[in-house]
């Protein structure tokens, strides 16, 4: 167990070394969440100045939605970007012939992703509070459960993308930037599931995010915590995460059969 933790730390340390002397990388992590927050923050100010109190509530939901959805995006990009860093530096050959187990590689990717998510979302949260008066902590302690579920959702999406990188090589790296953004319309971040076309609603309900954001809006509307939605999100995350891990393990094995680990960066 200690040996396993040390190997995971070795991979995490490798990425900490990379970030601590590369300010462009650090800026890039926080850049998009901050930009999104500024755009939606000013939209919020516009809405509250030109409409009544219902718009005020909606505007608060917009900022909360932006902040929480960024957790999914940053968690997903954190995993895939960390994996891609190994491909870009042509280091995977050394990593895969070391005693690092695939599960330990996944643990390292998730750990780096968690660190990147904190660094990415924290500045946006501070801006939301100081410029727009939105305090994410006002959602209460349940915010921790929301964040955990969203983090896990980002992770299983990322494991799916890394599996595609094993399958299709670095040629699939564009997926790292696009897939989670593509999910946004059916994640129901800014609107209830009922807004979607009838046939699309089951798809949205299969995503933990739709349940989390339904719960978030309920709290902001003063309806209290919807534990059923939270439980649905957690259950779906468990299923999707298990599927993501199984897909990762399967594609890793197939990459070893095809010889793709040797040529993954080409």
């Amino acid at each position: 167990m200690i040996h396993s933790a040390r190997r995971v730390w070795g991979m995490v340390y490798r990425h900490i070394c990379l970030y601590r002397r590369s300010w462009p990388r650090l800026v890039e992590i926080a850049y998009w969440p901050t930009l999104e927050l500024l755009i939606w923050g000013f939209t919020t100010q516009f809405l509250t100045r030109h409409a009544g109190s219902p718009a005020l509530m909606a505007a608060g939901s917009l900022i909360a939605g932006v902040l929480l959805w960024e957790v999914v995006l940053r968690a997903q990009i954190g995993v895939t970007f960390t994996f891609l860093e190994e491909i870009w530096s042509r280091n995977l050959g050394h990593v895969f012939v070391s005693p690092l187990r695939p599960a330990e590689l996944v643990a390292a990717l998730l750990s780096v992703s968690a660190l990147r998510t904190v660094v990415g979302v924290l500045p946006a949260s501070v801006i939301a509070y100081t410029m727009y008066g939105f305090n994410a902590a006002s959602l209460g302690p349940v915010l921790i459960l929301f964040l955990l579920n969203l983090l896990i959702m980002g992770w299983w999406v990322a494991l799916g993308i890394v599996s595609l990188l094993f399958r299709y090589g670095a040629g699939a790296e564009a997926l790292a930037w696009t897939i989670a953004f593509g999910i946004t319309p059916i994640a129901c971040v800014f609107y209830p599931v009922s807004v979607l076309p009838f046939w699309l609603q089951p798809v949205a309900q299969a995503l933990p995010a739709a349940h989390i954001f339904t719960g978030m809006r309920a709290i902001m509307a003063g309806q209290g915590i919807m534990w059923g939605e939270l439980a649905a999100a957690a259950g779906l995350n468990a299923v999707w995460l298990a599927a993501g891990i199984a897909l990762f393990a399967r594609q890793f094995h197939l990459a070893r059969v095809r010889g793709a680990l040797i040529s993954i960066g080409e």
């Binding site: 040996h3 040390r6 190997r7 070795g10 991979m11 340390y13 490798r14 050394h94 070391s98 005693p99």
Partner: peptide
């Protein structure tokens, strides 16, 4: 060398 030292315990 530190990274690989950790990976190889």
């Amino acid at each position: 060398l530190l990274v690989y030292g950790h990976l190889y315990n």
